[in-house]
């Protein structure tokens, strides 16, 4: 083995990069979760279920906004030069996923507000009559409403994709050099959102539908993770070493136990049994999926920072 010593010792950089703590994984997870929620909302709106008073798509936009705001707050916490945050909105940098993200977030909020206003829940419409009026007017324009559904799905997709591209664009961290990362985070976001919506939905059929969908997303996620790993181990030495950080290195326990076993495989089995009516639906499986999705972001963000080009063989 080579002996490699450096006198650099910069904070956040040495001995291995650790610029991003809990804030960024939480933000990325929330981004994915809200992306999934928007896609589900959009689908239900598109399908015309917004008219149903009990449809979960009536509350999802509001929940989405609250959760996303929390995520943006954690993102803000991570910034080192906070007073200059507004500089993001004086420019658009086409090569920078962060710039894309900043602008996507700007358009996500109006979309969620519009979705919320399509059929405002009674709690608000009773207090704020003007909201009810807007809902009435909106519902008269069926195509407009449908388009709001489409925009939800599109922006949800972009948001979910962006959380992955944000990392995969950073070529200096071999573990993130994967074109599967956007898909992984999108599918994981959809799965977490399905699990979440499954818990908050009132209608049994919606819950059933989302549990089935979640099973589909979880199966897909297993394939995406497999392809992500295969892509790594069939690449260069640094990428192989990066994959080993997940497979047998210091992040292997978190990856195998929390992401794969507890976050995907076991909840999938539980939910398969549930949708086939072998057991009752409980919040156990969805909570496991959500926590698994969160841990996935932590593992990818942390392990990715740990990997680098120089002196591979971590």
């Amino acid at each position: 083995m080579n002996e490699y010593t450096t006198t650099r010792h910069n904070e956040l950089v040495d001995p291995s990069l650790h610029i991003w703590g809990w804030e960024i994984p939480v933000y990325l997870f929330i981004g994915g979760l809200v992306a999934g929620m928007m896609i589900i909302t959009g689908y239900f709106i598109f399908k015309g279920r917004y008219k149903d008073k009990a449809c979960v798509c009536r509350v999802l936009p509001l929940l989405g906004m609250i959760i996303l705001s929390a995520g943006m707050f954690t993102l803000f916490l991570d910034l080192e030069h906070k007073l200059y945050t507004w500089r993001l909105y004086l420019t658009f940098k086409v090569a920078s996923p962060m710039s894309w993200g900043a602008w996507i977030l700007i358009v996500v909020y109006p979309t969620m507000i519009a979705s919320f206003l399509i059929n405002v829940p009674e709690y608000f419409s009773k207090k704020f009559l003007w909201m009810d009026k807007i809902s009435e007017k909106l519902q008269q324009h069926k195509y407009a409403v449908k388009n709001i559904g489409v925009v939800n799905m599109l922006l949800g997709g972009l948001l979910g994709i962006y959380t992955g591209v944000l990392l995969s664009a950073l070529g200096a961290r071999p573990l993130w050099n994967s074109s599967m990362l956007w898909l992984l985070f999108l599918v994981s976001g959809l799965s977490a959102a399905s699990a979440f919506v499954h818990m908050v939905a009132k209608r049994v059929d919606e819950r059933e539908l989302l549990a089935k969908a979640d099973n589909g997303f979880l199966i897909l996620e297993i394939f995406v993770i497999a392809l992500f790993i295969i892509g790594m181990v069939t690449s260069t030495k640094v990428h192989i070493d990066s994959a080993l950080v997940l497979l047998s290195g210091i992040y292997a326990p978190a990856f195998w136990v929390f992401v794969l076993a507890l976050g995907i495989v076991i909840p999938l089995i539980i939910q398969l049994l549930a949708v086939n009516h072998k057991i009752k639906h409980t919040p156990v499986a969805p909570i496991m999926v959500i926590v698994g999705g969160l841990v996935l972001r932590f593992v990818i963000v942390y392990a990715g920072q740990y990997t680098h080009w120089v002196d591979a063989g971590f």
């Binding site: 904070e11 956040l12 291995s16 650790h18 916490l77 906070k82 007073l83 740990y306």
Partner: peptide, 16 residues
């Protein structure tokens, strides 16, 4: 790896 450094906390409180 230290996900939340002390410095960062100080920074947040020091923002004002």
């Amino acid at each position: 790896m230290n996900p939340l450094s002390r410095r960062k906390f100080l920074k947040i409180s020091g923002a004002t």
